[in-house]
Design a protein around this nucleic acid. Structure first.
Lengths: 244, 244
DNA sequence: CGAGGGTTTGAAGTGCATCAAATAGTGTGG
DNA sequence: CCACACTATTTGATGCACTTCAAACCCTCG
């Protein structure tokens, strides 16, 4: 219970929930449900009736949709402090995608009704929600652009840049947050293509790769290579920094 | 003035603006600016200071971003009753893309400040705005999926299905709303690819093509072919039907 | 009629996917 | 701590889809 309170307190600090009413925060805390889920566990599937929304405490969750033949389209892969499932409010209470843990994770769930209520009764909150959705929208626009204009090595480079802390000078060390196979599908390519594209990127930009650890020696080489085919100037803001 | 009033009245009927306060509608009418623009005319470019948002009365407008070397990524192509530029409210008052007329068009512009005000002061309106953005978000998710999972002929078929009036039984005649070259870039492919993919689609589904007129004889052949690689069941809702 | 843009067709190249197989890495039970 | 099983990753070979470059065609409009 104590842990739960701590978690809620931290969540309450983020941009969206800061605008929540005290009553809302109280209810959040009361109705929060912290669950540990294992790798591969499915939280919900697309079209299912939606009655909860989720925030990730630890771990990683992928959002995806699939066709009849089982091909998956990864919509997003989320980590700590990210919220998902909340848009079903606007989708006749059906989840618009499926969600599955890709690592052992701790997930907090809340009744969607709380959110709905707060949106309807607290204008400041609904405005905060608007700006949260606007941020997501911008990110999606960028995603489409990336997939249209960048080739495989460039997309990987761009992904690495967004993982890197761009303030830092000098060599930067990055750990891929999950399976290379998953990074590949997150970037819309096959695992084999990812592997080959990564070594092309290595040759082109002088990064070094050992397993899932990647060292960037020269940030501007990397950004020069990756961002050439992108309309936004470097650094391509990581819109994910603001988490909710 | 009379024409202007008529236009505003029609706009006021749509989902988003129905939630506007009477004072808001009044101000909209007073501050509306109807402009005729010619093909190729640019309304604004990305990053420019935003002080207006737009609604299309007649014609077509493309939204796009471009890289240094001039390559364009088409974000969307919009027609009658669609709104654009409004998201700059959430982007530090800078347009996140450029907008250009692709046909002679009549465009109505309004001060962004009106919208900002209404969002801040009319909770019902900000909720309507939320649901409008949620709709857009869903559409973008679908767009990414299409580009990932569908091949060129399938994407064209899907595009045609969304143009067609799906209620209608029997043969359906469609006119491409703008240049094939533009349709191609809207679908993320080259004009040559479009041309070849269209004839593949013709062979596969029995549609007939004469210039920019396309006749669909058997809707289910077309949807069977195109929607096989898509997670949503046919008919892929045209989320654009609700225009704003 | 002739100019110019849009569209189609052809030929060749590139990038990514696919299938198959080898290799590296990880966790398990002995 | 090792051997085994299993999964993740890499590598190779091949094919397909789309792009690119070039040229022809077609349509419209002065």
């Amino acid at each position: 219970m104590d842990i739960k309170k701590q978690i809620i307190d931290r969540i309450a600090e983020n941009h969206l929930f800061r605008s929540g009413s005290p009553a809302f925060k109280e209810k959040l805390e009361k109705e929060a449900n912290l669950t540990r889920i294992h790798k591969g566990q499915v939280l919900f599937i697309a079209q299912e009736d939606a009655d909860k929304f989720y925030i990730i405490h630890t771990g990683w969750v992928k959002l995806f949709r699939e066709t009849f033949d089982g091909t998956q389209a990864i919509i997003d892969i989320l980590s700590q402090n990210h919220m998902f499932g909340e848009t079903s409010i606007f989708e006749d209470d059906a989840y618009p995608f499926s969600a599955e843990a890709i690592e052992p994770s701790e997930i907090i769930s809340f009744p969607l009704s709380l959110l709905k209520n707060e949106i309807e009764n607290n204008p400041a909150f609904s405005i905060a929600m608007l700006s949260s959705m606007a941020r997501y929208r911008k990110q999606q626009d960028l995603e489409i652009e990336h997939r249209t204009l960048q080739n495989a090595p460039q997309r990987i480079g761009c992904f690495l840049l967004r993982l890197a802390n761009q303030e830092h000078k000098g060599p930067i060390t990055i750990h891929l947050p999950y399976d290379k196979t998953l990074v590949a599908s997150r970037l819309g390519m096959q695992p084999e293509t990812f592997s080959r594209a990564l070594s092309k990127l290595k040759d082109a930009t002088g990064i070094s790769v050992k397993g899932s650890t990647i060292e960037i020696n020269n940030l501007s080489d990397l950004s020069g290579f990756s961002c050439a085919a992108c309309s936004s100037e470097f650094p391509c803001q990581d819109l994910k920094k603001e988490t909710v």
